[in-house]
Design a protein around this nucleic acid. Structure first.
Lengths: 218, 218
DNA sequence: ACTAACTTGCACTGAACTGTGCAACTTAGG
DNA sequence: CCTAAGTTGCACAGTTCAGTGCAAGTTAGT
């Protein structure tokens, strides 16, 4: 069972327990992705455990969902921080930054598919909304800068445009999970779609893509 | 209860029964939109009926879902036929046609939101896919023409691009149902988004929009 | 006004699922 | 090897929901 910080432990927790916990999170992400109402039994079995053992790791279903959300959101937000220091203050041009952000996120988002679905509607939608707030703010600031600089379209309100850009990225995830999409193809498509919604023509978008992604080979 | 074609009717069915049936479909569309797992009770009540009366109109839950799908798909496909005679053979330029198609569809799609969600995943996803096939073929043909004519982007396979365009339209529906969007705003946003994914820059897209929608005032 | 068409409320069955308690078993840490 | 940590299977309670039968009520055709 989960270690209580005040419990007088006579022995360290077993190593495999932690692994099983991870397995459950993994299984949950995978299964809930295709059926958000899947039973705990299905998830437990997919993780190689019994339903009963599941309750050794998570108290309730909502517990799992919450964990899953925070888990995913943490990864996303960590990605944001990774390279933020050199472009947060708005050094590069907004188009390139949007491209870079999209590409970076793509590699981190097997999990977001679930979150996107959960965010879409349902009981705990607000939970995810909060967890993803940093990302949303980041996008919004970027869009604002893009519009101010005359690079992005100015015929749609910034808040709306930000959400549409977000949706465009999710659409690509959708396309990927449904019709197959390699990592490289997906990254490219995310960038092109997102730039398209931002207002760039496909030739411009292509230029930005090549310019940015070769430069960003680190 | 639903009239059986072989039943020896002694009297015409009551008028209000048909109205109630419509009310159920309407309520279902509205409620399932925000919660696809909503109970029949909730739907029946929203329609102003008792749960028990619901079963006088639909035998099972799946029955309702199927009806709902076909209902929506029929509207969509009817919209396609409406003005098809003069542009099916590819007279106008693809950009304008895509804009027009998007705008036209927008006015018909309160119902499609449900279908989109149901299509997204779930047991009966194939059902909807089939029902929407005509629309998809139409879009795909149009995209093919746009690419051939050098108007649309050619850096994404036609099939994929078609699906992404479809997703872009649905994203706007999403935005609309979640953050409020008037008919006029929505129509405009659909067109701009769709053109953006197709590869047009926002200035071009804007030109096409004004050109097409004023002309299409009929 | 007569009566079929429709609605309602209630009670019930059956299914699926969540969450718990418990005894027995297996595994890994010391 | 010893024992706590973790797992398993089973039984059980509680909930929610789909679907059905029936008796009694209301509404709208004719």
């Amino acid at each position: 069972m989960p270690s209580d910080s005040t419990t007088p432990r006579t022995r360290a927790p077993r190593r495999d327990a932690a692994e099983n916990r991870e397995a459950i999170l993994l299984a949950a992400a995978s299964i809930l992705n295709s059926d958000p109402t899947a039973s705990l039994e299905a998830i437990a079995v997919e993780a190689g455990l019994s339903r009963r053992a599941f309750y050794g790791h998570f108290a309730t279903r909502d517990d799992l969902l919450r964990e899953l959300a925070l888990h995913g959101a943490a990864r996303i937000n960590a990605t944001l921080d990774g390279h933020e220091s050199d472009d947060d203050e708005g050094s590069g041009d907004p188009g390139s930054e949007l491209a870079l952000l999209g590409a970076r996120l793509w590699d981190e988002v097997d999990h977001v598919r679930v979150m996107a679905l959960l965010t879409l509607r349902g009981p705990q939608s607000t939970l995810l909304g909060d967890a993803l707030a940093p990302l949303r703010h980041r996008v919004r600031r970027l869009v604002q800068r893009g519009v101010d600089a005359g690079a992005f379209r100015d015929d749609v309100p910034v808040a709306r445009l930000s959400r549409l850009i977000e949706s465009a990225a999710i659409s690509v995830l959708d396309e990927g999970t449904r019709h197959g999409l390699s990592s490289a193809e997906g990254r490219r498509l995310v960038v092109l779609s997102v730039l398209g919604i931002a207002g760039f023509g496909h030739r411009e978008a292509h230029d930005i893509l090549t310019r940015t992604l070769t430069k960003a080979a680190r």
